[in-house]
Each structure stands twice: as C-alpha cells, then as structure tokens.
Design a protein around this nucleic acid. Structure first.
Lengths: 212, 212
DNA sequence: TAGATTGTTAATCGATTAACAATC
DNA sequence: TAGATTGTTAATCGATTAACAATC
C-alpha cells in the first residue's frame, strides 16, 4: 500500500465526518460521499479523497458501509487509544475540563494539574494538583505525552521547554503566548482572543472582497 | 487607491501582529517586518504583504513606525468600534464571558442572554437574561449584529435562522451543530471537540508525512 | 556610498475542484 | 443495461515564498 499524504486540514475534517456519520440512525447502512459533503457543506470529491486515505471500503453505487467507515476513521484517528496529559496552571483546570469535554472524552486523559505553589493536597474534582518541582518525575512515571499550557505571558515558553524536556511531544497552548517548539513536537495554540477576531471584522472583509 | 484582496487568513494574522507590536516597549520606535516575522514564526515577505494591505507607513531601511502601525491595524480591524452581541443558551454565558475575555474586551459587547424559559428577572452578572420571545424586538431595538449560539443539536439551526431573521449578520457557533447560513452572513464555528482533535493524532500524522 | 529595508512581480507550492474512467 | 457512485488524474485556484527593483 502506498503512502498517502496526510494534511492538517484532513485532520480537522475527519472528526467532523466522524461526528456526522455517527449521528446518523442505525437504519442508514450505507452513506455516500455526496451526502456527507452536503451535510457538512463541503465538496463531495474532497470527501471521497479524504475517505480514501483512511478507508478502502467505498462501494460503487452504494457508498460506504456506515459502521465500517466509523471504525476506519476511529482507527485512523486512534480515538480508541488514550493519550495522557497534564495541565499547567491549575487555576484553569476546571474551565478546560468543561470546555473540552468532547476531546477529553475521546482521547485525552488529564492525569494531573501543576501549579507554582499549590496548597498541599489540592485537587480539582478528582484530579490532583502538584507543585511544579514534581513535573519531571510525574511525566516519566506516567508516560505523559500531552502538555496543556494555560498560564499567560513570558512563563509560557519556559514551561513549554520544561515539558519538552519531560518527553512531552504535544503542546496544547491555551495562553496568548507565542511559543516555539522543535520539529518533532506538535504545537497547537488556541489563543483566547487571537483567532476569534475575524469574527469582529467580517463586514469590512466581505465588502472588500466584493469590490475586489 | 486600488482594492487589495483580504483573506480570512490575513484576518487571523493581523490580530497576532497587533498583539505582538503592542507588547513591545515604547522605546521601540521602529519595527521591521523581519522582526515581526521572527517573533511570530512567519515569513517576512508575508508580513510585509499583509501590512501593505492595512498601512502605507513602511519606511525603507527603518521599518514601520510602531505607533502608526498599531493605529493602522486597529483602524483596519475596527477595534475601536464595538459590535453588539447577544448569546443564546444563557447557561453558558458565564463560561463564554470568561473564555472570550480577550475578544469581548476588544470589540464585542454582549448585551443580553436568551434562554427558552428563564426564571423572571434573571441576570448573569450584569447581563440580563430574557425569554426567547423577546429576541426579535430586542435585536431591533439595540441593533444587534452578532449572535452567539451555545445550545447544541437540532435547535441550533433553528435559532440560527431566527437570529438571521433579526438582521444579525454574524453568527458565532460554539455548539457542535453544523449550521448553514446565507452568503451575506458570516459564520464561525468553534465546536468544542472538532478542531482540537488534530492534537490527538499528531504522532501518526507526523509519521505519515515523514514517510511520504 | 553601502546597507537595510520595503513593496511588487513572478515562481512555487499545496489544496481544492473538475473531468472522467472504473465498477457494481 | 442504465444509473449511481467511487477513486484517480489533470486543471484550477489561492496562498506563500523567492527574486529583485526601489528607496532612504
């Protein structure tokens, strides 16, 4: 089997496919690319191309077997396997857990929070909060691969470096800091303000594009 | 002056530029594209191209006058002007206000929350919560242009349509529903789970790209 | 002047879409 | 068979980058 190119855009679309396909009633045995595309507002060809990368189950005239496609996407996304995560900046742990319920249910398990100077034996719900000096040993002991950074400003990069030194290979940056990471580390930044601003500006942008 | 093309990507980068430039000390009178690019991990040419669209202040050998550039970007983004918003699904109002502090401080002002059947005279902080049947008259009275949808599932599209009927031109969808809107309406969806999933999958995606 | 920087035009790259053959 | 659908190859589109002239 040849290697197919996997883009980050694909990685964003696959969960959408999965969610939609799962939402269909069990009575839908087959599902076509055209239907998925229409439901999600995408092009049918793109859907087919995407699905061809994760599944070989497409059948002419019928489409994809729904359950098989679900399984293929899940296997590809490794939704079944769980990655272990910790969160730095325990004050935001609550909120992250609430907001990211979806992703946490799927494949990320937050084992612990870390904070500069927590009161002894603090917990957030069932999740324990530790002092930063336990970071390294904890990550090693529990094979943590995901670090969630919620503390703002200059500290963020320093924390990020420490996490990478702990063999964390995925940084999820929920602060407004700009982080740099080595190539082998995956960084995703969801700045509270940043990417939302397009929302603010829409009318002007649209107007400019119309005139252009 | 010719019309320059404005892409959504530009709209995402400008706020990043703005944030970075603002973070510089007042002693930095000039700022160069190369410096901005390095700080944000982007290409210098792209930064220049972007800035050329919103400012004409670049000076050879020196760069851009920092304060003038800040002003130009702000004017372009209309950060100064405030858009009026309402939120549907008042149970999440708290959380949205906390999470989106950045954007709310900048240019979106949430006037009210709406819910199916709120207790009389409910408020969330200082923000009043109204019943859905007041939606239309409220939007008209206050010239609301942004609708924030936090309720999940099938109701979301229905609410969306109602908002559009109220002359709302920007929908910010924080639910997991897939919404469709007419061309003149700006839709931004931040599904809790969806776009974050790439995070989960990084190791495999990277591996595949390496072999490709 | 020489060097640093901008801004623009052309080239490259990647992603999406169109066209179409293959299949059931 | 005819029609519906997949999957692939080629074309298009848009965004980024490279090259370079212009400027101070």
């Amino acid at each position: 089997m040849e290697i197919k190119k996997i883009s980050k855009k694909l990685m964003k679309r696959l969960p959408l496919y999965l969610e939609y396909i799962k939402s269909l009633p069990d009575s839908a045995v087959y599902i076509s690319s055209a239907k998925i595309a229409a439901a999600l507002g995408l092009g049918a060809v793109m859907v087919r191309k995407d699905l061809a990368k994760v599944s070989d189950g497409g059948r002419c005239k019928l489409g994809y077997i729904r359950t098989a496609l679900i399984r293929d996407i899940e296997v590809f996304l490794e939704v079944t396997s769980t990655r272990r995560a910790i969160l730095i900046g325990a004050g935001n742990l609550d909120r992250v857990i609430t907001d990211c319920a979806g992703i946490l249910q799927q494949g990320i398990h937050i084992l612990a929070g870390f904070d500069m100077d927590p009161a002894p034996e603090t917990t957030c719900g069932e999740i324990p909060i530790y002092a930063m000096n336990k970071l390294f040993s904890f990550c090693q002991a529990y094979n943590v691969s995901v670090g969630i950074i919620t503390i703002p400003g200059e500290d963020a990069q320093r924390i990020c470096n420490r996490l990478i030194a702990c063999d964390v290979d995925t940084i999820w940056n929920l602060s407004n800091a700009h982080l740099t990471v080595p190539d082998h580390v995956c960084l995703r930044t969801d700045s509270p303000a940043g990417p939302l601003t397009p929302l603010l500006v829409h009318p002007k942008a649209e107007a400019a594009q119309r005139t252009a």
